[in-house]
Structures are given as structure tokens and as C-alpha cells.
């Protein structure tokens, strides 16, 4: 059984973006049932990390295991909340249509969403207090509401491991606290969440564990242990310029895939 396996295990993960390395040799073993923040300065590779783990970006070297299995076998156990800006909100779909997309992965090819899928989608909308908007076109939503729709879609995936890309960016205070409540609720149910986060002060209070990232893994551990001046200095301070210089050189020489 893999039930005690780590939710996510990375070994020597290196990722290049347009042939330029952005993440170097990341080793990580994420336990189940934790709410984990990924923090680091701009260009530290926070989004790149979760995208590479989900197979959205090619990996230059290293491997990824999800619940002790290769990624391909555990796609159904992964839920994803992309950055809000990554889609066109004028797209001709309703709120309900978007949340139903959360069910598509389980349905597999060809099969249509059933009545039960619609029930699940409605329940998920209710959880983020967006049920009254189910039949609205998505372009009429505020930023916070859009984020809630994305969360509802991820909930509808009924996954065990969630990746969220900056769910708190550009949302109102009410949405922020609604999201936090929801994340805590998911944690109660044993889910694991990795959340890319921009804001250091709130990172400290929101997350059980932190991944401090700046092109390499600076630290990973319980928030109380890694949220130290010294480690934050290493993460945010300008000491890593050598890595990015070398990354440029690697790009020039076209060494990596």
C-alpha cells in the first residue's frame, strides 16, 4: 500500500524554461495532510516548480513521484488551480460549465458529465458561496469571484493533492478568508495542498510548512522552523546571482533540453 507514501516526492529535479535552467536539483519529500506554502522572490521558479511537477513543463533531469507512484498513474489524485490570469474570462462558458470541467478528468475521453457530476459541481459552488452565480457568464465576475470559481473547479476534481498558483493574488479580503477556511477544511479531510504565495507576512500565519525557493531549494520544513531571518535572507537576498549567471551561460550553450 502507498497510503503512507509521501504525497509528493521529488528527486534532483532540474527544470529549464526556454532552455534556461530555472530550478536546480530540487529534492523534496512532502508529507500528506499538510498545508504548504511555496515562497520566494520573483523569478524564483515557484510556478515553474508546480507546473513541472504536474507535467506541464518538460523536466531536464530528476524524477517526480506522487503518492509513491509515477505521475502518469496518479493524475486523478491531483487537483490544480492555475493563475487566474492564465485564461480568457470572456470565453463563452457559464460558471457551472467551468466547475464541471473539474469532473472531466475523472470522466476520461468522450463520456459526458452526468447528473451526479452536476450535483458535485453544485455542492462545490455552494462551498465557495458561488451557487447563485452558477448560470452567469464568467466575464461578469469580479477577481475574487473568478478565483472562487477556480477553487470550486479544483474541489470538483475531488483530489488528494492540490497545486494552487497564487490563489490569493488580487482577491478581496472576504474571498481571502473564505479561501483560507476552505483550505483548512481540506486539510481536516487529509488533503495535501501546495500553494504558491507572494506575501511573506501572511505566509507565516497561513501555512503549516514552507518551501523557501530561489532557483534551488533553500529550505523546507515546519513554518516555525524555517521562517527565520537567516533563511529568508538567503532566499530573498542577492546571494544567488551566480546561479542565474550560470543559467544564462547554459542557455547560450544550449546544453539542456
Amino acid at each position: 500500500m502507498h497510503d503512507t507514501a509521501p504525497a509528493l516526492e521529488l528527486h534532483d529535479l532540474t527544470v529549464a524554461y526556454h532552455k534556461k535552467p530555472v530550478l536546480w536539483g530540487i529534492d523534496l519529500e512532502v508529507p500528506q495532510g499538510k498545508l504548504i506554502g511555496i515562497v520566494g522572490p520573483n523569478g524564483a521558479g515557484k510556478s515553474t516548480l508546480i507546473k513541472a511537477v504536474m507535467g506541464l513543463l518538460p523536466i531536464s533531469s530528476g524524477w517526480v513521484k506522487v503518492f509513491g507512484q509515477p505521475l502518469k498513474k496518479s493524475l486523478q489524485r491531483i487537483g490544480y488551480v492555475p493563475q487566474r490570469e492564465s485564461v480568457d474570462w470572456d470565453f463563452p462558458v457559464s460558471v457551472m460549465d467551468v466547475v464541471l470541467m473539474g469532473r472531466y478528468g475523472r470522466l476520461g475521453l468522450i463520456k459526458r458529465p452526468t447528473k451526479e457530476d452536476r450535483e458535485v459541481a453544485r455542492a462545490c459552488l455552494e462551498k465557495v458561496h458561488m451557487l447563485p452565480y452558477a448560470n452567469r457568464q464568467i466575464s461578469n465576475l469580479s477577481g475574487g469571484q473568478q478565483q472562487r470559481v477556480f477553487l470550486a473547479r479544483a474541489l470538483a476534481q475531488e483530489s488528494d493533492l492540490y497545486f494552487m498558483d497564487e490563489p490569493f493574488s488580487g482577491v478581496d479580503a472576504a474571498t481571502e478568508s473564505a479561501i483560507i477556511t476552505l483550505l483548512h477544511e481540506l486539510r481536516e479531510r487529509g488533503k495535501t495542498m501546495l500553494v504558491v504565495h507572494h506575501d511573506l507576512p501572511t505566509a507565516r500565519e497561513y501555512f503549516d510548512m514552507l518551501i523557501l525557493l530561489n532557483m534551488r531549494l533553500v529550505a523546507f520544513g515546519p513554518t516555525s522552523e524555517v521562517f527565520t531571518n537567516e533563511l529568508l535572507q538567503t532566499t530573498y537576498g542577492g546571494r544567488l546571482t551566480i546561479l542565474s549567471d550560470v543559467a544564462e551561460a547554459v542557455k547560450e550553450q544550449r546544453i539542456l533540453r
Binding site: K51, M54, G55, L56, L75, Q76, I78, Y80, P82, S86, V87, D88, F91, V93, D97, V98, M101, Y104, G105, L107, L109, I110, K111, R112, P113, R153, Q157, F163
Partner: peptide
């Protein structure tokens, strides 16, 4: 008609669709 769901999700949010295994 047959692949409506697939065409829709990949047109709207290709990253999500890929993460969901499409």
C-alpha cells in the same frame, strides 16, 4: 459532438486540461 468536452476544456484552459491528463 463526440469530443465536445475535450475541445471545450483545452480551448478554455489548456494548462488545466493537461494537468487533468487530456
Amino acid at each position: 459532438t463526440v469530443f465536445y468536452k475535450e475541445c471545450l476544456v483545452t480551448s478554455f484552459d489548456v494548462g488545466f486540461a493537461r494537468a487533468a491528463g487530456f
